[in-house]
Write a protein that binds this DNA or RNA. Structure first.
Lengths: 334, 334
DNA sequence: GAAAATATTGGAAGCGCTTCCACAAGTTCG
DNA sequence: CGAACTTGTGGAAGCGCTTCCAATATTTTC
C-alpha cells in the first residue's frame, strides 16, 4: 500500500513495459493471459495502487461526477445523492458534492469551481437556472443532468417528475373528496422551480373550479410555518375546509398545530402535503401527500451518466420517474 | 471559458514565462504589480480556467477532501457534510462523499477507492473502525478526522461529542425527575460506536441505582420500531414509567404510538430521545432529547483539516464540540 | 559608485499515468 | 514456404500544471 509505488515499478518487477501494465489495469483485451498474470502478481506483491490523478490527466477523464443540491442536510435532496453514489461507486466513479443554498449566484460559483476539476458529468437540481449557469454548463461539453423536476427544454438531459402534475392530481383528489374551500400554503421565500410548479399545479387544478373558494398564502418552510398557516386559516372567517401545503414539513407542522388546538383532521380540516417524508405515514392522522422514490431518481440519474460516458447515447433526454399520490387519513372524509 | 485555453497560452498572451503565470495564480508574493496586471489581463481576455487535475498532479495536492458517512440520505449525517462543504468551498477545496452503509467492509472499499484519488485529508464517521480501516488510514499519510463521537485514542484527530456522557446526563435527568422504572430502547442491528456508547452511558448511569428497575430492549431504528417498543412496554406488567430511546426516530415513533393509544405523556409514560431532530421540538408533547450542532461539527472538522493542510498543526487532537440536554414536555412531571 | 543583497523572471524538468506507433512474434493461406 | 494478417509488446511522447534553478534586474549598503 506504499503510495510511492508507481506503475513503472510494477513494470520493472514484472519485466514488462509500462504500456502493458496500463493495459492490464484498464482491462484491454490485447494482453496474453501469461503476461497478465505476471503483472497482476507484481501489483499484488508491491501493493500497487494506481494514482487516479495522473490517470485523469493522461486520459482526460477523471471519473468524478459533480452534483449540486440546494441544501445537503436535507433528506429530500440528499436521498438523491445516496442513490447516485450507490451506482457511481459500482462503476469506480466518485461524487463531488456542493450546495447552492437556493442562490443562483452561489450555484454558479460552485459549478465553476467544479468544472475546474474536470468532472466527467454534472448533476444539478431543478430545471430553471440562470442564463449564466445554462451557458456555462452548455459550454462545459460534459453531460449535464437536471433532476427532481421535468421540463421539455432541458440543458441536456433531465430526470425527474412533474411537480406540476403531481400538484394537479393532489388538488383534484381533494376536490373529488368534496372539499370546496381550499387554501394552498406555499413558502415565503423564492425557492426553486419545483416549489413554483407545485403552486402552478394547484392554480391550474382549481381554475376550472365550479363553486370553489380558494386562496394562496405564504409561510416559512418549517414546522412553525405550517402551524402559523393553520392559525391564519382558523382566524379567518371563510371556513377553510382543506389546506394543501407545498411541502410535508409545513403540512406536518400544520397537523401538529391541529393536534394542539383540538382541530379534528380531516373532519373539521383536511390537510395534504408534498414529498412523503417518513413521518407522513406515522403521524396522527397519517398525511396525504405526494411520494417520489428519490433514491431511485438518483440511481437513474447516475445510470444515465454512466451510459452516456460509455457511449451508449441512445437513452432519452427526458426521463420521467413518476410520482404517486398517497391518500392517507388526513384527507379521508369521515 | 473555452477549456482548451492552457496556462501556456496565457503566458504567451501576457508575454511572460509560464512560471510567472503560475505564481500569479497561486498568489506568490514574488511577482511585481505590473507583471501581475499583465497576467490577470491575459487571463480575463482568454477566459482561462486552470486545470486543477494537472495542478493536482504537479503539486501533489488535490484540494479534495474525502468524507464517509453511514448513510447520505439521513439528516444527522448529511448536516455534518453541509458544514464541511461550507468551509471547504470557502478555501477552494471540494468534498468527495461516500456511504459505508454501516458496514466495515464497504467502509474499507470506499476508503480505498478514495485514497486512489489522493485526497488531501479524509473524514470518517465514528471512532471505532476495523483494524484494516485503521491501518489503511494511518498509512495513507494524510490527516484523518474521525467525527460524531469521542475517543482518547483517535487514529489522528477526532471532533465530536461524548455519546456516552450525553446518555449518562439524559438518564440522570430522568432519575432526578423521579422516574424509577426506566426502559432503554436501542436498535436491533449492530450500528456503530455511537449507538453502543449511548447504551453504555445508560447502563453506567443506572448502575449506581438505588431502587431503580431498568431494562434494555431492542427495536428497529424507525418510527414503527419505536411504536413497537411502546407496545411492548405497555404489554409488560412492570409498570414502566419512562422510556429512553437511543434515537429520536424511535422516540418520535413511540410518542406517536402513545397518541394513538391515548397514553398520557409524560403523566403515564415519560419519553426521551437522542439527536434533536427538528420534529422533536414541534411534536406533542415536545420531546426531551440530546442536541448537538451537527452543521457546526462539520465546520469544525473542515477547519481542522484546512489548518492542518496549511501547516498550522498546533490544534488539539481531540476536539469536543459538546452536547446539550434539552428538557421538554415529554419528561416534565406534571 | 561598486559590491552585496534582494526581488523578479524564464523555462526545463518532472508529477504518474495513457496512448500511439513501431516492431516482433505467431498464424493463416494460396 | 513466403506473403499477408493478426496478436502482443515496449517505450516515447505528452496530458497541463508546479517548482526549482539559474539568470537578470533592482535595490541597498558602505
Amino acid at each position: 500500500m506504499d503510495s510511492t509505488v508507481r506503475l513503472s515499478d510494477v513494470a520493472k518487477r514484472a519485466a514488462v513495459g509500462v504500456g502493458t501494465v496500463s493495459r492490464v489495469l484498464n482491462g484491454s483485451a490485447n494482453v496474453s493471459a501469461a503476461t497478465r498474470q505476471k503483472v497482476l502478481h507484481a501489483i499484488a506483491e508491491l501493493g500497487y495502487v494506481p494514482n487516479l490523478v495522473a490517470r485523469s490527466l493522461a486520459a482526460n477523464r477523471t471519473g468524478l461526477i459533480a452534483a449540486i443540491i440546494p441544501v445537503i442536510g436535507n433528506t429530500q435532496h440528499s436521498e438523491v445523492i445516496q442513490g447516485m453514489t450507490d451506482v457511481l461507486h459500482a462503476h469506480g466513479m466518485n461524487l463531488m458534492i456542493g450546495a447552492s443554498g437556493y442562490s443562483d449566484q452561489v450555484e454558479l460559483q460552485v459549478i465553476e469551481a467544479f468544472l475546474a476539476r474536470r468532472p466527467d458529468a454534472i448533476y444539478v437540481t431543478g430545471v430553471r437556472h440562470s442564463e449564466a449557469v445554462r451557458s456555462t454548463l452548455q459550454r462545459s461539453g460534459i453531460p449535464v443532468v437536471e433532476g427532481s423536476n421535468l421540463t421539455d427544454r432541458p440543458i441536456d438531459t433531465v430526470v425527474g417528475y412533474s411537480n406540476f402534475n403531481a400538484s394537479v392530481d393532489l388538488t383534484r383528489l381533494l376536490i373529488n373528496r368534496g372539499y370546496r374551500r381550499i387554501w394552498y400554503v406555499t413558502v415565503t421565500r423564492d425557492f426553486d422551480d419545483r416549489i413554483d410548479d407545485r403552486l402552478e399545479g394547484f392554480r391550474s387544478a382549481v381554475s376550472t373550479g365550479l363553486e370553489l373558494k380558494t386562496d394562496v398564502i405564504r409561510c416559512e418552510n418549517s414546522f412553525d410555518g405550517g402551524a402559523e398557516a393553520v392559525r391564519l386559516a382558523m382566524a379567518s372567517n371563510v371556513g377553510v375546509e382543506a389546506m394543501i401545503f407545498a411541502t410535508d414539513v409545513m403540512a406536518v407542522g400544520g397537523l401538529l398545530e391541529c393536534q394542539r388546538r383540538g382541530i379534528n383532521v380531516p373532519a373539521r380540516l383536511a390537510i395534504a402535503g408534498f414529498d412523503d417524508l417518513t413521518i407522513a405515514a406515522s403521524i396522527n392522522p397519517s398525511l396525504t401527500t405526494i411520494k417520489v422514490d428519490r433514491v431511485d431518481l438518483g440511481r437513474k440519474a447516475a445510470e444515465i451518466i454512466v451510459n452516456r460516458l460509455q457511449g451508449n447515447d441512445h437513452s432519452s433526454r427526458i426521463v420521467d420517474v413518476g410520482f404517486q399520490v398517497v391518500e392517507r387519513d388526513s384527507t379521508r372524509r369521515p
